Structures are given as C-alpha cells and as structure tokens.
Simulated assay, not measured.
Amino acid sequence: MADFNLDNRDPNDINQHIQVAFEDVLAEPEGIRSMNCVWKFTYKCFTLWKQLCYNIATLCCGLCIAMNWGCIFAETAFYHIWYITPYLKWLEINCTPFKKLFRMCLSCCLDPICESVGTVFHACKK
C-alpha cells in the first residue's frame, strides 16, 4: 500500500469546487447582523452537524462506494489494456497500406495541379 498524506486528502485539488466551510455557506452582510452569541452558536452548530452527518454517511456508505469505484476503474483499466489499446494498434497496422495508397493517389492527382498553379503565380510579377 502506498504511503499517503492523512492531512492533505486532496493533493491534486480535484474537489476545489466543493466549498462547504461555514464562511462559504453562511454570511451576514453589513447592515444586518444577528447577535454575536447567535452567530457563534450558529457556527458551532453548523460545523458540528456538517462533520457529524458527513462522518455517518462515510461510515455507512464510504467503503461500499470506494469498492464500487475501485471495480469500475479496474474494469476501465482492463478494457484499455486488453481491448482498446491492442485494437488501436491493430487498426494502425491494417490502415497503414491504405494510408500509403491514399497519399500516392493524392500525390499523383494534386502534385501536377499544385505545380502548375505555382508556376502561373510565380510568373506573375508586379
């Protein structure tokens, strides 16, 4: 098992869009304020219940969801390693002759036209 940081659980910042701190959710503008004791208790209540509900949800569901996502990503890796990448290689190998034939046909048809047009414009001078 790889070592990981228990303090920084989002080292790649993939969940920066989720802002659920008290200051990100509740705010009182200038001119309208609750009493300080209410605001402090609101902060403590919000923080406690947010953390408690999150802990209960992760305790009840987190392991099952992690196992599900592990299986999904294992399946994705399996398909890429054993099906998609070899299939793309097979297509690359089998399409190479058609690619060469297409280039030859374009070269035979378009090179004389492009050279003629180039000669015409080369002859035009100010």
Rank of each mutant, 00 (worst) to 15 (best):
K89H: 15
Y87V: 01
I56Y: 06
K50T: 07
W49A: 05
T47V: 06
T76P: 02
T42S: 15
N68G: 13
V38M: 13
C61L: 15
G62L: 11
T96P: 00
Y43M: 04
F73C: 11
C64Y: 07
E75V: 08
L59D: 04
Y83P: 09
K50I: 00
V38N: 05
N94Q: 10
K100M: 12
A74N: 11
K100G: 09
A66W: 00
T85Y: 04
Y87R: 04
W49R: 11
E75N: 15
T85S: 00
V38E: 03
I56K: 01
L101C: 06
W82F: 15
W69V: 12
A57K: 06
F46G: 08
K40D: 10
G62T: 10
A57W: 13
L88F: 05
P86W: 08
G70I: 02
M67H: 05
I65C: 11
C53I: 14
H80M: 14
Y54M: 02
L48N: 03
K44D: 03
W49H: 14
K89G: 12
Y43S: 07
Y54P: 02
P97F: 03
E92F: 01
C60N: 13
Y79S: 05
A57M: 10
C95Y: 05
F98K: 01
L48T: 06
H80L: 13
N94I: 01
T42Y: 03
L63S: 10
F46E: 00
A66Y: 02
P86E: 07
G70P: 07
L59S: 15
L91V: 12
P97D: 00
I81N: 12
I81V: 12
K50A: 02
Y43Q: 15
W39L: 01
W49K: 06
L91F: 12
C95A: 13
L63H: 08
I65V: 12
